[in-house]
């Protein structure tokens, strides 16, 4: 217990010290996780809404698969992306293994199913409410997808945040495809793993506390925006 309090003190000292290396890691973590959340949302939101609104063969199978993908082990995703991006792999010529882009690719693959599965539920609820009215107005199911996404935007913001949280907390895949290269692909989680490896548990815990604070700040900010606009729009 004492160690945890000591770590919190160390976390505060680290923040107060404004260590540029640490700041770089925090900023990189935020950038990559946000990029993955945005990319995951760009894939997951339309996909989730399409599944919610659409009627096509295999829809149920797709829903079950999607829900199962929520538990996708990140190490597996990391390995698959590694093998794809490896020079010996099909996408090796891109040469992005062990770069931030590789991290975003892996995180996006982890985020997209979460966003799609949660967005499907949100969109399905919205569709239940809107179906009759939109059909009456002559809106096709395909045309309803962007309409529903836009109308459920406040709820979907939370969904995207969940995706961001997964990306920011991700370590297994990021370690494999990023390589935890100092100053290039070292993010908060892999830095924590490294310090844990070095047995510097207080520093690792302090970094963990900072990661939680950063994620908390992002969540609080988005929550405030969401509350404000939701109140305005009803």
């Amino acid at each position: 217990m004492f160690e945890i309090f000591a770590s919190l003190g160390e976390a505060l000292a680290l923040i107060g010290g404004a260590d540029p290396a640490l700041a770089g890691i925090v900023v990189l973590s935020l950038e990559l996780s946000l990029a993955a959340a945005v990319a995951g949302a760009a894939i997951g939101l339309p996909l989730g809404a399409l599944i919610a609104v659409g009627r096509f063969p295999g829809r149920r199978t797709l829903i079950v698969t999607l829900n199962a993908l929520l538990g996708l082990p990140s190490v597996v995703v990391g390995l698959v992306v590694y093998l794809l991006l490896s020079r010996a792999g099909p996408l090796g010529s891109l040469g992005i293994l062990f770069t931030p882009a590789a991290i975003v690719v892996a995180q996006t693959l982890l985020v997209a199913p979460i966003v799609a599965a949660l967005a499907r539920q949100v969109a399905e609820d919205a569709w239940r409410e809107y179906e009759e009215q939109l059909t009456s107005l002559g809106v096709s199911r395909l045309r309803a997808v962007p309409t529903i996404l836009w109308d459920a935007r406040f709820s979907l913001l939370t969904v995207v945040l969940a995706g961001f949280g997964r990306a920011a907390s991700e370590v297994g895949a990021v370690m494999i495809v990023g390589g935890n290269i100092d100053g290039v692909t070292r993010v908060m989680t892999t830095a924590i793993a490294l310090e844990t490896s070095k047995g510097d548990l207080p520093l690792a815990l302090a970094l963990g506390a900072i990661l939680i604070l950063v994620v908390l700040a992002v969540n609080a900010g988005v929550f405030a925006i969401r509350e404000w606009s939701a109140r305005r729009h009803g």
């Binding site: 339309p46 882009a101 962007p146 290039v184």
Partner: peptide, 22 residues
Amino acid sequence: GLAGIAAAAAATTLLAVPPARA
């Protein structure tokens, strides 16, 4: 429409990924 959203997202992604540092 959706193409616009996807393009915007892709642009955001590219902007957010920092270029090689050194």
